[in-house]
Each structure stands twice: as structure tokens, then as C-alpha cells.
């Protein structure tokens, strides 16, 4: 039991690093609700992939979800920029529309097939230690989720590492960034695509609630107490990791769902830090 618990905490912490970094960027761009929006928007992608391939449990559905995940981000960008609609409204319009289209497609073409995100795409943290990656020779390499999330964490860390300067400037002063020739537009779109890919891939491994919570709560907790970009990013990852440990212990103690417990603990951490920082501020 200890080993599987460790695997869960480690994979969840890897996720916390990826989403912790991206979450900060989302927060600064005022699109913290993007994770939730993507979780609803992938539905038409799944349905269309099913209708095209006729397969229910296959990579095709995942590809459909990825396409829609990236698609919804671009759609939000488009509505926001081209029509100058404020960000949250653009998110709300896009995801409700896409989800509705998904429901309509299912109702018309796939009434008799259980085809929602929860039963075909979204994974579950508790299954991680069971879903092992073995080589054809039978060598056990540990949970599949671990490797996927490790890859995601490496990609995201290198993105933030490579683009640190650009991000710093383009987040806080896009015009200045443009003037200095930093191509904020390019970085911005790379970031948009990366967020969507990470989010959908993580949904497949650990389920929606954990990703949605990790995309915002640790970042918000870090935002309360940090004044620089690097400490913001670092603390955000750290809070995700502590929430993973705490949430797993809570689930172990109570026998409940692990992902839900981690999301809850992340919220409680936020509350505690908020209260402490309020007290510290009132004394100072």
C-alpha cells in the first residue's frame, strides 16, 4: 500500500508542477477559469472522433479531445481579441456553446452509447498504481501516468525556463515586449497551446477535478504571498505538492476520493494562508 500511495503522491506532485507553472500564467492573464472551460468543451471532439472512427475506447477519442481543447482556447482568444469581449465572457460563451454542440450531436447520433467525458476520457488518480507501463519483454517500468506527467512537467518547466524573460515582460507589458522585439504574440500562442495540451493530457490521466483545482488554487495561494515572478511560480508548485501529500493522507484516513480530497486540501491551504497573511498584514 505504501508503494502505491507514494506513486500517487509523486504523480500528483508532477502534475502540480506543470499546472502550478501554467496556473500562474493563466492567473496573470485573467483566465483562471480556462481549465474548467476546457473540461466541458472537449465533448464535441470526443463525439466527432467517435462518429468518424466508430470506436469507443481508442486513441481517436483522445485526439478529438486534444483538438477541441486547443480549439476552445483559440476560439476564446479570437472572440476576445476580434470582438473585444472581456475574457470571462468569452470563456463562458465558448464553452457553453461547444458543450451544447456536443450534447446535440450525442442526442442525434449516439443516443445509445455512453459517451461522456467522464466515462471515456477522464482518468482517475486512484487507478494510477494499477495502470502500469510494461515493456514487451515484461519489464515493469512503473505507472504509465508517472511517465506521462513527468514528460509534461519537463516540457512545462523548459517552456517557462526558456521563456522566462519573455513571459516576465510580455505578461506585465506586452507593448514594451513588442517594442524590444520579443514577439509576445508567438510566446502567447505557444503558451495557449501548451496549456490546452497539458490540461487535456492530464485529464486523461487523473481526471478533471484535480486538474481544475491545481490550475488555480496553488497559484492563487502563492499569489497572496509572493511579489516576484520566480517566487510566485515556485510557491505555486510547492503548494500543489503539499496539497498532494495532504490530500492523499486525508483520502487514506477517510477512504474517500483522492482527487477530491486534494482539491479540498488545496482550498483549505488557500484559506489558511489567506488568514495568516491577513493577520500578518494587520499587525504590520
Amino acid at each position: 500500500m505504501l508503494i502505491s500511495g507514494l506513486w500517487i503522491i509523486v504523480t500528483s506532485s508532477l502534475l502540480a508542477i506543470s499546472t502550478g507553472l501554467l496556473g500562474c500564467l493563466l492567473m496573470l492573464r485573467r483566465s483562471a477559469m480556462l481549465g474548467d472551460a476546457i473540461s466541458h468543451s472537449v465533448l464535441p471532439g470526443i463525439v466527432m472522433a467517435y462518429l468518424l472512427t466508430g470506436q469507443k475506447s481508442s486513441i481517436a477519442l483522445f485526439v478529438g479531445a486534444i483538438i477541441l481543447g486547443v480549439g476552445v482556447s483559440l476560439m476564446i482568444e479570437f472572440i476576445q481579441k476580434r470582438f473585444s469581449v472581456q475574457n470571462d465572457a468569452a470563456i463562458g460563451l465558448s464553452f457553453t456553446f461547444l458543450f451544447a454542440v456536443g450534447v446535440i450531436l450525442i442526442s442525434i447520433f449516439a443516443q445509445d452509447i455512453d459517451l461522456d467525458q467522464d466515462c471515456v476520457i477522464y482518468g482517475e488518480l486512484a487507478y494510477i498504481p494499477l495502470d502500469l507501463w510494461t515493456t514487451p519483454t515484461g519489464l515493469n517500468l512503473g505507472p504509465r501516468a508517472f511517465w506521462i506527467l513527468l514528460a509534461l512537467a519537463i516540457i512545462n518547466i523548459s517552456f517557462v525556463g526558456l521563456a522566462y524573460k519573455e513571459l516576465q515582460v510580455s505578461i506585465f507589458d506586452p507593448l514594451f515586449a513588442q517594442a524590444t522585439g520579443l514577439h509576445p504574440q508567438v510566446w502567447h500562442y505557444v503558451q495557449v497551446v501548451l496549456v490546452s495540451l497539458t490540461v487535456v493530457a492530464a485529464f486523461e490521466v487523473v481526471g478533471a477535478i484535480l486538474v481544475i483545482a491545481f490550475l488555480v488554487t496553488p497559484a492563487a495561494t502563492a499569489y497572496l504571498i509572493s511579489h516576484r515572478l520566480w517566487s510566485f511560480l515556485g510557491l505555486s508548485c510547492l503548494w500543489g505538492i503539499t496539497a498532494s501529500i495532504g490530500g492523499y493522507l486525508l483520502a487514506w484516513w477517510s477512504g474517500g476520493t483522492i482527487a477530491g480530497a486534494i482539491a479540498l486540501i488545496a482550498g483549505i491551504q488557500f484559506l489558511i494562508v489567506l488568514i495568516i497573511s491577513k493577520i500578518a498584514k494587520s499587525k504590520a
Partner: peptide, 11 residues
């Protein structure tokens, strides 16, 4: 929704 308890049972 799978819980920690269920994971123990399964393994």
C-alpha cells in the same frame, strides 16, 4: 468515483 479504499481492495 473510485476512492482510496477501492484502490486498496483492487490491489
Amino acid at each position: 468515483k473510485a476512492s482510496q479504499k477501492d484502490l486498496e481492495l483492487l490491489s
